Amino acid sequence: MSDKCDLCLLGLIILSSLLTGSSGVAYDHVFISSGGNVRLSCNKALPDCTWTYSNSFIHSAVELISGGIKKKDTERHERLSLESDCSLNITNVTEEDYGEYICRQFVNGRHQGPDADVFLHVLHVSVSSSSSSSSSSQTEISPGRSVTLSCQLYSFAVLSCDYWVSSEGFEMLWVNQTGVDLKTDSRYQISSSSDQYRCIIITLTTTLLKEDDNREWRCQITHRKQLKTSVRYTVKYSDPGETEVSVNAGLLYRVIVTIVEIAVFVPPTVILLQIICARRAGRKDSRPPEEIEMPAILQ
């Protein structure tokens, strides 16, 4: 019985060390929000290294770096760079960059030391509303509309999400500008779920108020109360006052143009008509009396 307990304890210690990277095995977990830049360490400063990558979308590892040189046939080629110590930099991270990155180092063609095994976890927010749809950190919507913000943690790790939450103290929250958990406010409906690609999905739904203009909400993930990464989302309304002023200004401009056109073209037209009428009247007055037709009643 004692042997079984010792074995269970050893198993938990190993699992915990995999997550924290505190054992002799070179595991690391890196959290980043989409759109950010990240650096993945290879542990040793050797010029000859190979980086491979895999996640839930692909069945076999993809080689990103070979012999210290970037592979040009990868989709993320332009966003990758390699430092002198073989650390891998990824710029403008997307949710598709999540996964397991393995760095192997070589000396004279021979594999040296333990591999650096890095699990990259990407936090991403998408938004939908009854008037617009966007995946950016800011969108133009209007009060009275319902908006849903979906915060998703893309992960590919050796440990299950349930283990992370229940045993390792990971937590994902929607908070306001002052860091207060929005679950404490009844105007927000918050739910959570997960799927094959996204370890945690936490959704916030609310009806927008006038005072929500320029309001910031933040989705964050913490490990034992320590912030790992976060994504900010700002509500931005279009100003109806500015729109009205713009419309009125446009209308006023058209009225002024019309008045000017009338002022320019009407007087010459009136003068021309007066001249024509005067000439016609002069012609009638100059005719001899016998040429003037008498009304039928006087004939």
Rank of each mutant, 00 (worst) to 15 (best):
R104D: 05
S54A: 11
Q189T: 12
V255A: 07
L80A: 01
P267M: 12
S137R: 11
I14M: 08
L64S: 02
N55P: 03
S126I: 15
A26Q: 11
S142H: 10
V255E: 15
I13H: 07
T20E: 13
L46D: 09
S230K: 03
T243Q: 11
R104T: 02
R254H: 13
S160R: 03
G241F: 15
L64M: 04
S33K: 13
S84A: 11
A263C: 14
V231I: 07
E100R: 14
T207A: 04
T243K: 08
V122R: 12
S131L: 07
S167Q: 14
V231D: 02
V264P: 09
K183F: 05
H29R: 11
Y237D: 01
C86Y: 02
D162N: 09
L272N: 11
V118H: 06
Q177H: 01
E83W: 06
T234V: 06
A278I: 01
A263N: 09
R198A: 10
F57R: 08
V118I: 10
S126Q: 11
L159F: 10
W51G: 00
G36L: 14
V231T: 06
Y53F: 15
T207Y: 02
R287C: 00
D73F: 00
V245H: 15
E242M: 11
L82I: 01
F170R: 07
S155H: 07
S87C: 05
S137N: 14
A281N: 13
S56Q: 13
L123N: 07
I256Q: 07
L40Q: 03
P268S: 09
I65M: 01
S60I: 04
S142T: 10
L19S: 02
W164I: 05
S192F: 02
H124I: 01
P114Q: 05
S167N: 15
T20K: 10
Q177W: 04
C86Q: 00
V122Y: 07
S160D: 10
D73M: 03
S167C: 05
T243M: 06
I201N: 07
Q138H: 13
S134I: 15
I65Y: 03
I221T: 02
S186E: 06
T50E: 09
P288K: 13
A26V: 03
V270Y: 10
L12I: 09
V247Q: 11
N176P: 00
G179K: 06
G169M: 00
H77T: 09
I32Q: 06
Y27H: 08
L149W: 01
E83H: 12
K44I: 11
L153A: 06
I297G: 14
N37L: 08
I65G: 04
V245R: 15
A26G: 09
V93F: 03
T178M: 08
H59S: 14
H77M: 12
P288T: 14
M1E: 15
V147I: 15
D195W: 01
V260Y: 10
T20P: 12
S142C: 08
T206V: 08
R79A: 07
L227W: 05
H124L: 04
I69C: 09
P289Y: 07
S192G: 06
L298E: 12
S133Y: 12
H111D: 05
S136D: 13
L18N: 12
Y98P: 02
L15R: 12
G36N: 15
S186H: 06
